[in-house]
């Protein structure tokens, strides 16, 4: 047997060695689009060094408190906060975490608009951000309907007309406490968490968008370009 007849070592696995199971295909796809170094990065491009990037993280941090305070309120039922000073405090935590969640999210959204952050195949990241904002508004709105006080009575009365006029009110009755309760503590939190998680994964997968009009001649690209180019050529 000559050398030419011997099996040659290959870096790429033979097609028959590739795991074609659904799980195997999913694992390869996940590792391709979101390798660990992208999912949990230890470095960022040098332009990611401005305070505006804090607001996205601020929204997520606020969401942690929204969910946490909501979970404590859930443990004790919707009337607890009227009867207990501790319950009222947790209701206040819930209220202010929601206020700051929206505050951070709105600034984050405007910042991303002015950064044209949808560039470079990041349109879906932008869309999921807008959708998470819209779904969060519905979640917050149902929360205001569950206060079991005058404000929730009035909001239920006032909001019904727009929903009824658009045909939604027949299926989403804002004056029905039980129905709104289930939407607020189960369906909408799941929706918000799923969309926010998708948004964050898209950000991690695509990376932070470079500055508008960034060019190869910029110093922050030039400094490493020779090394990078050499390694790529090798």
């Amino acid at each position: 047997m000559t050398d030419s007849q011997l099996p040659q070592p290959t870096l790429e696995p033979e097609p028959e060695d590739v795991d074609h199971s659904w799980s195997g295909r999913l694992r390869r796809w996940v590792l391709k689009v979101l390798p660990p170094e992208k999912l949990l990065p230890t470095s960022q491009p040098s332009y990611v060094a401005t305070w505006i990037y804090m607001f996205g993280m601020g929204a997520i941090a606020s969401l942690v408190f929204v969910i946490g305070s909501g979970a404590v309120l859930s443990l004790n039922g919707p009337m607890w906060w009227h009867l207990s000073p501790l319950g009222h405090f947790f209701n206040s935590l819930h209220l202010w975490s929601v206020e700051f969640f929206f505050f951070f999210m709105v600034i984050h959204l405007w910042a991303k608009f002015w950064m044209a952050a949808w560039r470079g195949n990041r349109a879906l990241t932008w869309i999921t951000g807008v959708v998470s904002f819209a779904v969060s508004i519905v979640a917050g709105f149902t929360g205001y309907l569950l206060q079991t006080n005058f404000d929730s009575q009035w909001i239920a009365y006032q909001a019904k007309d727009a929903l009824n006029a658009s045909g939604i009110g027949a299926w989403f009755n804002v004056a029905n406490f039980g129905q709104m309760f289930m939407w607020h503590i189960l369906l909408l939190p799941i929706a918000v968490l799923v969309i926010v998680a998708l948004h964050v994964l898209l950000v991690r997968g695509h990376g932070v968008v470079p500055p508008l009009d960034a060019a190869e001649s910029d110093s922050q690209l030039r400094e490493t370009t020779p090394t990078e180019a050499t390694s790529r050529e090798a």
Binding site: P41, T42, V48, Q220, L221
Partner: peptide
């Protein structure tokens, strides 16, 4: 990004 980076801990 092929340019300069800075340390970051998510």
């Amino acid at each position: 990004w092929n340019g300069t980076t800075r340390p970051y801990d998510l």
